[in-house]
Design a protein around this nucleic acid. Structure first.
Lengths: 144, 144
DNA sequence: ATATTTTTGTTGATATATCAACAACCTGAT
DNA sequence: ATCAGGTTGTTGATATATCAACAAAAATAT
């Protein structure tokens, strides 16, 4: 069998982990007390203010259970509040606190730079090729 | 800011997760009672029989602590045994049990097919382009 | 209007990731 | 021989992933 370390999927995992570590380290350096995943959820709530937790889960391809727990932490750490939905007794409506909003605004200045740094020295057409390739893989894996 | 869902790193995470789910589901379908990560560690021990846990951790870019716990489970589930190292009082030597060996042998027939299925309909030069791209990203992230 | 099914979110159990602190051991310098 | 510093593996705390079971509410069918 092909050496695992030469496979595409090995490299994929390695890249995700390395980028996550870089991202998290940068957050810490810049004084943020929030995880990559918490940032992702806050951001998704801002982009889709009326999404249910289930919809948020789909958008970030996480489990509903993970969303429940990440949101729990965001509320505990005062980045987010939630209220019962006016008409749907099972859903919630979310609102970023001032602290949450400020954090996102600051991070949205920084995050594009993280991406640029990570992608430095790469050709944009190669990035596009890779994205298309990954889309095919996702389709293949979902089909089977 | 660019919509997160269009970014390269979003696609990267999505692809890793989807492939992991596919892999894990296939394992279950074929009657294996082992996780992707456990398979990865077993395989690494076979490839590098004299590696220390720290070295294994580096090879699979996991934390030493994760390796301790995954190995603990592999031993508990009787895929692996370990003994103290003859000369180094702090290290261990590992040995797959017959059950472990059989599992790996069977999986090493299957896993290449998982990869082929996931990569179906993709051009090999695009795979190579993507791998090179990811290598650059890893270097960029480690440097900073 | 009632029964059935679906949707929505929570919880428990288990596996893994990450960070920090730690103990035991090893090595090298003095 | 001793001491300082590095290595190796473990443990605790916390965050997340995944699966399954579940309860409450909503939507649909009859």
């Amino acid at each position: 069998m092909q050496k695992i370390s030469n496979t595409f999927f090995y490299q994929l995992e390695k890249t995700v982990k390395t980028y996550r570590q870089y991202f998290q380290a940068q957050m810490k350096t810049h004084g943020f007390d929030i995880t990559l995943d918490q940032w992702l959820i806050l951001n998704t709530i801002l982009d889709y203010p009326n999404a249910s937790q289930t919809e948020i889960a789909e958008k970030v391809f996480k489990d509903k259970a993970s969303i429940t727990r990440i949101i729990e932490l965001l509320i505990k750490n005062e980045y987010l509040t939630r209220e019962g939905h006016p008409t749907h007794g099972r859903m919630f409506q979310f609102q970023l606190t001032p602290k949450g909003l400020k954090t996102i605004e600051q991070l949205n200045q920084l995050v594009p730079k993280f991406r640029e740094n990570a992608l430095a020295g790469t050709a944009s057409e190669n990035i596009e090729v890779s994205q298309s390739l990954m889309q095919i893989i996702v389709e293949n894996c979902k089909r089977e």
